[in-house]
Amino acid sequence: MLTINGSYGEGGGQLVRTAVGLSAVTGKPVTITNIRAARKKPGLAAQHIAAISAVAGTCSAGITGAKIGSRSLTFSPGEPEYQDLTVNVGTAGSIPLVIQAWLPLALCYGGRLRISGGTEVNRSPTIDYLDHVLAGILRAAGAQIIIEIVKRGYYPEGGGEVIIEVVKKNIPPIFPINANHLPVGIISCSSNLPDHVANRQASAAALAITSETGFPCTIEYDRRTGKSTGSSCTVYRGAKGGCANGRPGLPAEVVGENAAHSALAGFLNPADVDMHLSDQLLVPLALFGGEFTAPVLTSHADTVCWLLRQFGYTIAPRKGATVEFSYDAGA
């Protein structure tokens, strides 16, 4: 039984989600202590429990401590297999973060997950970023990942719904995407708002991108009605992207500009992936091998590298003009 200090490094929900996913993939039981100890509301929240449930349902795991506010969790995995699961976060908690926990296991064994919660919420990538950036580089490596956004959900009501299916395949090592020939994609979304909100977000994002880089842009609008009201803008090109969410009183133009500036930080850097994708890609890198570079070593990426070592995967970042991550899964 591994014991993981949940307050190490970044010390947040990412450590819990990643540890549970690695436990399921490796078959090593784990106890996580001091969960989110330094957070304003320490312990597990609804989104973390949903992620644990999604992983546990794929490997028939035994769990103790999976309740709101719990600062300790024991996860004992069983035999993983393809499962068709339904998980409800019960709040506007992040659907993309729940998927991140479940995805490594699904890449190895296949699976289908219907999940309800928030598709675009703060302190999380949007579902569009996950679909086009994280899943995009995995698809380029050979993964078959199908994502359907049934309903969009925003804070605080939530009400979003996503179906993701992963087909079991032998995935070769993961290497950077050559994006030189690709336009910049812009996805501008709104729910229960006038059409001009999504228009203004997209126009501002496109202007910021073309003014700075000259890259051509393609724009996709997704305007809906639903349980929750909100908006988002996601900007991406290859393995780099950025996103921003609207809020009452924030002009739509600022939302688009914020998304563009977040993406430009990656577009204008010579590294292969953006700083946010680097930690999300480390577990697939450990499972399948490959290499990529990132602009900096973030606290999230550093924490995931530490956690991977606890499970027997040594990825040692090499710092230079960019930060290089590599792993030989066959060694």
Rank of each mutant, 00 (worst) to 15 (best):
L2V: 14
G12R: 08
Q14S: 12
L15F: 04
A19Q: 06
A19M: 08
G21L: 11
L22Q: 09
T26N: 14
T31F: 06
T33Y: 00
T33P: 00
I35T: 11
I35Q: 10
A38N: 07
R39T: 02
K40N: 05
K41V: 14
L44A: 01
A46K: 01
Q47C: 12
H48W: 03
A50V: 09
A51K: 06
I52P: 11
A54C: 06
A54Q: 03
V55A: 05
A56W: 03
A61D: 01
A66S: 15
K67N: 14
G69T: 01
S70A: 13
E79R: 09
Q83V: 07
D84N: 07
L85F: 04
T86C: 10
T86I: 07
T86E: 15
N88Y: 03
N88W: 01
T91C: 04
G93D: 08
I95Q: 12
L97I: 02
L103N: 04
P104C: 15
C108D: 14
R112E: 15
R114Y: 02
S116G: 11
G118V: 02
N122D: 00
I127S: 11
I127M: 12
I127F: 05
L134W: 11
I137R: 07
L138Q: 01
Q144N: 08
Q144D: 09
E148Y: 05
R152F: 00
G153Q: 00
G153D: 00
Y155F: 05
G160N: 04
V162R: 10
I164R: 09
E165R: 00
V166L: 04
K168V: 04
K169D: 02
P172Q: 13
P173Q: 01
P176F: 10
P176H: 09
A179R: 08
H181E: 15
G185F: 10
G185D: 14
S188F: 09
S188R: 13
C189K: 02
C189V: 13
C189N: 04
S190I: 06
S190A: 14
A198I: 00
N199L: 06
R200S: 07
Q201S: 11
A202D: 14
A204R: 15
A205T: 01
A208H: 11
A208S: 10
T210N: 06
T210F: 03
T210R: 14
Y221G: 05
T225V: 00
G226E: 02
S231W: 08
R237P: 06
G238E: 13
G241Y: 07
G242A: 12
N245I: 04
G246N: 06
R247N: 01
P248W: 03
G249I: 04
P251V: 07
A252M: 01
E253K: 08
A260I: 09
H261Q: 10
A265H: 12
G266W: 09
F267G: 03
A271D: 15
V273G: 11
H276M: 07
H276I: 15
Q280D: 15
V283E: 04
L285I: 04
L287I: 13
G290E: 09
T293Q: 07
T293D: 13
V296G: 02
S299A: 11
H300M: 02
W306T: 12
W306C: 13
W306N: 15
L308H: 08
Q310V: 02
F311C: 05
A316S: 13
P317Q: 08
A321L: 00
T322V: 03
T322C: 09
E324P: 01
S326H: 15
Y327T: 13
G330R: 06
